[in-house]
């Protein structure tokens, strides 16, 4: 059984996930979930973003793990290989996903970083097509990849295989236009599971809200819901909103259907669209930035975010 699960995750990390994404994408497309919004420019961008990182990023990580780390951390290879599996799993799950939460949050809240992440938010639809859609520099500097590679070098690699596999499945499922979490909200007897699920991991409802084109309708919340595998970071830091509803429209209001190469390779290539955030003379952030990420959280009665509670107590 252990061997089976092991080979399952091993294959998932090699070829399984892209295959799952392609099959799910075909189903989404067949169900009409892209609503004729997948035009030529979007198609090229999505496909380039799906293929190029798989060809470029994987060798870069292998290079980093096999060549750079022995130079940076000589003599540390495998020093923590004694850590029992479940502890290693717990350590990597927190280290990897909390780092990605920060990487993601900073790209939303620090104005000059926004344009590196904008490509992921410009898609006017949800689904497998846009799940990998990122600016190349955003992908290259994906901080948690290097952290997990370092932890693998230190001896936690076996657990990393399972954490990264599980994380890929959860984040991919959260981007899907198939609203698989809906039954958890509509069937009363599933509500206790829904309560735990939506606070623990990213679901289509919470992550779709993050991709909404508006933060003012009480459902969409692109100013928060930064969690990737775990949603619990948004609960702890008060940056989340849980409504169990799905936004009416996705993308960003400032989208000007910028050229796919400008979205993929900004700032190397700039957009020619006038007033675009990706153009030479365009604004850094066309939309206003979040002033207070706590105030819109639809809280349970008596809820108080951890930082606010600490501030009040101090």
């Amino acid at each position: 059984m252990v061997k089976f699960i092991e080979s399952l995750f091993h294959n998932l990390s090699l070829w399984g996930l892209p295959v799952i994404m392609i099959i799910t994408g075909i189903i989404e497309f067949g169900l009409g979930l892209y609503e004729n919004k997948w035009n030529k420019n979007e198609r090229i961008l999505d496909i380039v973003c799906f293929v190029v990182p798989k060809v470029l990023i994987r060798p870069a990580i292998v290079y980093f793990t096999l060549l750079a780390l022995p130079v940076i951390l000589p003599g540390f290879k495998g020093v923590f290989s004694w850590v029992p599996f479940w502890w290693a799993f717990f350590i990597i799950a927190i280290a990897d996903d909390l780092t990605q939460y920060w990487y993601h949050r900073l790209h939303h809240q620090v104005p000059w970083l926004w344009r590196f992440h904008r490509t992921h938010h410009s898609a006017p639809y949800m689904g497998m097509a846009m799940a990998s859609r990122q600016n190349l520099l955003y992908t290259i500097f994906f901080s948690q990849i290097y952290l997990t590679a370092a932890l693998t070098y230190l001896g936690l690699g076996y657990a990393a295989l399972f954490v990264t596999g599980l994380k890929s499945l959860i984040t991919t499922a959260a981007h899907s236009s198939i609203k698989w979490d809906k039954p958890f909200y509509s069937k009363r007897w599933l509500h206790p599971i829904a309560w735990v699920l939506e606070r623990l991991i990213s679901t289509p409802a919470t992550h779709h809200a993050h991709h909404a084109d508006s933060s003012n309708d009480g459902v969409g919340y692109y100013k928060g819901n930064f969690g990737n595998m775990f949603f619990i970071w948004d609960i702890i830091f008060g940056t989340g909103i849980i409504t169990r509803k799905y936004p009416a429209a996705y993308g960003t209001k400032a989208y000007k259907n910028e050229e796919w190469y400008a979205q993929f390779l900004w700032p190397v290539f700039k957009s020619r669209k006038e007033g675009s955030e990706l153009s030479v003379t365009g604004p850094i952030v066309a939309d206003e930035l979040p002033e207070n990420t706590d105030h819109q959280f639809k809280r349970e009665p008596g809820y108080e975010s951890l930082p606010n509670a600490l501030t009040r107590l101090s």
Partner: peptide, 10 residues
Amino acid sequence: MKLQKETARK
């Protein structure tokens, strides 16, 4: 566009 003070504090 600058990082807002309140955001930076948080």
